[in-house]
Simulated scan of single mutants.
Amino acid sequence: MDVEGMNWFVFGACLSACAAAAVSGMLFKPGAWYAGLSKPWWTPSNWMFPVVWAVLYVTMSVAAARVAALPDGAVLLALWATQIAFNTLWSGVFFGLRDIRTALIVMAVLWLSVMVTTAFFWQADVIAGALFSGYLSWITVALALNFSVRSQNARTA
Protein backbone atom coordinates (compact mmCIF):
# COMPACT_ATOMS: atom_id res chain seq x y z
CA MET A 1 0.00 0.00 0.00
CA ASP A 2 2.91 2.37 0.59
CA VAL A 3 5.12 3.01 -2.43
CA GLU A 4 7.51 5.94 -2.29
CA GLY A 5 5.67 7.69 0.53
CA MET A 6 2.21 7.35 -1.00
CA ASN A 7 -0.77 5.40 0.31
CA TRP A 8 -2.54 4.09 -2.80
CA PHE A 9 -5.75 3.27 -0.95
CA VAL A 10 -6.03 6.89 0.23
CA PHE A 11 -5.17 8.04 -3.29
CA GLY A 12 -8.08 6.00 -4.69
CA ALA A 13 -10.49 7.17 -2.01
CA CYS A 14 -9.57 10.82 -2.54
CA LEU A 15 -9.74 10.47 -6.31
CA SER A 16 -13.23 9.01 -5.84
CA ALA A 17 -14.22 12.05 -3.77
CA CYS A 18 -12.83 14.25 -6.54
CA ALA A 19 -14.91 12.27 -9.04
CA ALA A 20 -18.00 13.16 -7.01
CA ALA A 21 -17.03 16.84 -7.24
CA ALA A 22 -16.50 16.43 -10.98
CA VAL A 23 -19.92 14.80 -11.38
CA SER A 24 -21.45 17.75 -9.52
CA GLY A 25 -19.80 20.02 -12.07
CA MET A 26 -21.17 17.89 -14.93
CA LEU A 27 -24.70 17.83 -13.48
CA PHE A 28 -24.83 21.60 -13.14
CA LYS A 29 -23.44 22.81 -16.46
CA PRO A 30 -22.86 26.49 -17.17
CA GLY A 31 -25.24 26.63 -20.16
CA ALA A 32 -26.93 29.65 -21.67
CA TRP A 33 -27.46 31.32 -18.29
CA TYR A 34 -23.72 31.50 -17.61
CA ALA A 35 -22.93 32.46 -21.20
CA GLY A 36 -25.29 35.43 -20.83
CA LEU A 37 -23.58 36.80 -17.73
CA SER A 38 -21.09 39.63 -17.91
CA LYS A 39 -17.61 38.29 -17.18
CA PRO A 40 -14.18 39.91 -16.96
CA TRP A 41 -11.85 39.87 -19.96
CA TRP A 42 -9.49 37.48 -18.18
CA THR A 43 -12.08 34.71 -17.77
CA PRO A 44 -10.42 31.40 -18.71
CA SER A 45 -11.66 29.73 -21.90
CA ASN A 46 -14.37 27.11 -21.36
CA TRP A 47 -12.10 24.28 -22.57
CA MET A 48 -9.62 25.04 -19.76
CA PHE A 49 -11.94 24.15 -16.89
CA PRO A 50 -12.19 20.37 -17.39
CA VAL A 51 -8.52 20.10 -18.33
CA VAL A 52 -7.30 22.02 -15.29
CA TRP A 53 -9.71 20.24 -12.94
CA ALA A 54 -8.60 16.82 -14.18
CA VAL A 55 -4.96 17.66 -13.41
CA LEU A 56 -5.83 19.26 -10.07
CA TYR A 57 -7.96 16.34 -8.90
CA VAL A 58 -5.06 13.95 -9.50
CA THR A 59 -2.50 16.21 -7.78
CA MET A 60 -4.85 16.82 -4.86
CA SER A 61 -5.28 13.07 -4.43
CA VAL A 62 -1.55 12.40 -4.63
CA ALA A 63 -0.94 15.09 -2.00
CA ALA A 64 -3.48 13.51 0.35
CA ALA A 65 -2.00 10.05 -0.20
CA ARG A 66 1.45 11.37 0.70
CA VAL A 67 0.35 12.85 4.05
CA ALA A 68 -2.06 10.10 5.11
CA ALA A 69 0.45 8.02 7.08
CA LEU A 70 2.20 10.95 8.73
CA PRO A 71 1.75 11.52 12.47
CA ASP A 72 -0.92 14.21 11.87
CA GLY A 73 -2.40 12.31 8.93
CA ALA A 74 -5.92 12.21 10.37
CA VAL A 75 -5.99 16.00 10.80
CA LEU A 76 -4.52 16.53 7.35
CA LEU A 77 -7.11 14.26 5.74
CA ALA A 78 -9.88 16.02 7.68
CA LEU A 79 -8.70 19.31 6.17
CA TRP A 80 -8.65 17.67 2.74
CA ALA A 81 -12.19 16.37 3.25
CA THR A 82 -13.41 19.83 4.27
CA GLN A 83 -12.12 21.50 1.13
CA ILE A 84 -13.51 18.83 -1.22
CA ALA A 85 -16.93 19.20 0.42
CA PHE A 86 -17.00 22.92 -0.37
CA ASN A 87 -15.56 22.22 -3.82
CA THR A 88 -18.45 19.84 -4.53
CA LEU A 89 -21.04 22.27 -3.15
CA TRP A 90 -20.02 25.25 -5.27
CA SER A 91 -21.22 24.02 -8.69
CA GLY A 92 -24.71 23.26 -7.39
CA VAL A 93 -25.03 26.66 -5.76
CA PHE A 94 -23.60 28.68 -8.66
CA PHE A 95 -24.87 26.81 -11.72
CA GLY A 96 -27.75 24.81 -10.21
CA LEU A 97 -29.37 27.44 -8.01
CA ARG A 98 -27.87 30.32 -10.01
CA ASP A 99 -27.17 32.03 -6.70
CA ILE A 100 -23.99 33.97 -7.42
CA ARG A 101 -23.93 35.69 -4.02
CA THR A 102 -24.16 32.47 -1.98
CA ALA A 103 -21.72 30.79 -4.37
CA LEU A 104 -19.27 33.60 -3.61
CA ILE A 105 -19.56 32.80 0.11
CA VAL A 106 -19.04 29.09 -0.61
CA MET A 107 -16.04 29.97 -2.79
CA ALA A 108 -14.55 32.17 -0.07
CA VAL A 109 -14.85 29.33 2.45
CA LEU A 110 -13.41 26.94 -0.14
CA TRP A 111 -10.47 29.29 -0.73
CA LEU A 112 -9.83 29.55 3.01
CA SER A 113 -10.00 25.77 3.45
CA VAL A 114 -7.64 25.20 0.50
CA MET A 115 -5.22 27.82 1.84
CA VAL A 116 -5.18 26.20 5.29
CA THR A 117 -4.85 22.71 3.80
CA THR A 118 -1.98 23.88 1.57
CA ALA A 119 -0.15 25.43 4.54
CA PHE A 120 -0.56 22.30 6.67
CA PHE A 121 0.40 19.99 3.80
CA TRP A 122 3.47 22.13 3.09
CA GLN A 123 4.62 21.84 6.71
CA ALA A 124 4.03 18.07 6.77
CA ASP A 125 5.45 17.19 3.33
CA VAL A 126 6.99 19.69 0.93
CA ILE A 127 5.94 17.70 -2.13
CA ALA A 128 2.32 17.48 -0.91
CA GLY A 129 2.33 21.21 -0.26
CA ALA A 130 3.72 21.92 -3.71
CA LEU A 131 1.13 19.64 -5.30
CA PHE A 132 -1.65 21.52 -3.51
CA SER A 133 -0.25 24.95 -4.42
CA GLY A 134 -1.53 24.72 -7.98
CA TYR A 135 -5.00 24.12 -6.61
CA LEU A 136 -4.71 27.18 -4.37
CA SER A 137 -3.71 29.24 -7.40
CA TRP A 138 -6.69 28.00 -9.44
CA ILE A 139 -9.12 28.57 -6.56
CA THR A 140 -7.73 32.10 -6.19
CA VAL A 141 -8.60 32.73 -9.84
CA ALA A 142 -12.03 31.13 -9.30
CA LEU A 143 -12.70 33.34 -6.27
CA ALA A 144 -11.73 36.46 -8.22
CA LEU A 145 -13.89 35.33 -11.14
CA ASN A 146 -16.89 34.62 -8.89
CA PHE A 147 -16.44 38.04 -7.24
CA SER A 148 -16.17 39.78 -10.61
CA VAL A 149 -19.22 38.00 -12.03
CA ARG A 150 -21.15 38.93 -8.88
CA SER A 151 -20.07 42.56 -9.20
CA GLN A 152 -20.81 42.82 -12.92
CA ASN A 153 -24.21 41.14 -12.58
CA ALA A 154 -25.34 42.54 -9.21
CA ARG A 155 -28.87 43.30 -10.40
CA THR A 156 -29.48 39.77 -11.68
CA ALA A 157 -27.50 37.90 -9.00
Rank of each mutant, 00 (worst) to 15 (best):
M1E: 09
D2M: 15
D2R: 15
V3S: 06
E4W: 11
W8T: 10
W8G: 05
W8Q: 08
F9H: 06
F11K: 02
G12H: 00
A13R: 07
C14S: 02
A17D: 01
A19E: 00
A19I: 03
A19C: 06
A19Y: 10
A20Q: 08
A20W: 11
A20K: 07
A21Y: 03
A21C: 08
A22M: 11
S24C: 09
S24H: 03
L27R: 15
W33C: 09
W33E: 13
W33G: 04
Y34N: 08
Y34I: 05
A35K: 09
W42G: 12
W42D: 03
W42V: 09
W42N: 10
T43Y: 00
T43F: 01
P44E: 01
S45A: 15
N46H: 13
W47P: 10
W47F: 14
F49I: 05
V52Y: 04
W53K: 11
V55W: 06
Y57E: 00
V58T: 08
V58P: 13
T59K: 04
M60F: 02
S61C: 02
S61Y: 00
A65W: 03
A65G: 15
R66V: 09
V67Y: 09
A68M: 13
A69K: 07
G73F: 05
V75M: 14
V75E: 15
L76F: 05
L77Q: 04
W80Q: 08
W80H: 09
A81T: 12
A81F: 11
I84N: 05
I84S: 03
F86S: 11
N87Q: 14
N87E: 12
W90P: 12
W90E: 07
S91G: 10
V93W: 00
F94S: 00
G96Q: 02
G96E: 00
R101W: 04
L104A: 14
I105D: 06
I105F: 10
V106R: 11
V106C: 13
M107C: 12
M107S: 10
V109E: 06
W111L: 10
L112W: 03
V116P: 05
W122T: 14
W122V: 02
Q123N: 13
A124W: 11
D125H: 04
D125Q: 03
I127P: 02
G129L: 06
G134W: 05
L136G: 02
S137N: 00
W138M: 03
W138A: 06
I139D: 04
V141I: 15
A142P: 14
L143Q: 13
N146P: 05
F147L: 10
F147C: 10
R150C: 10
S151F: 07
S151W: 14
Q152H: 03
T156N: 11
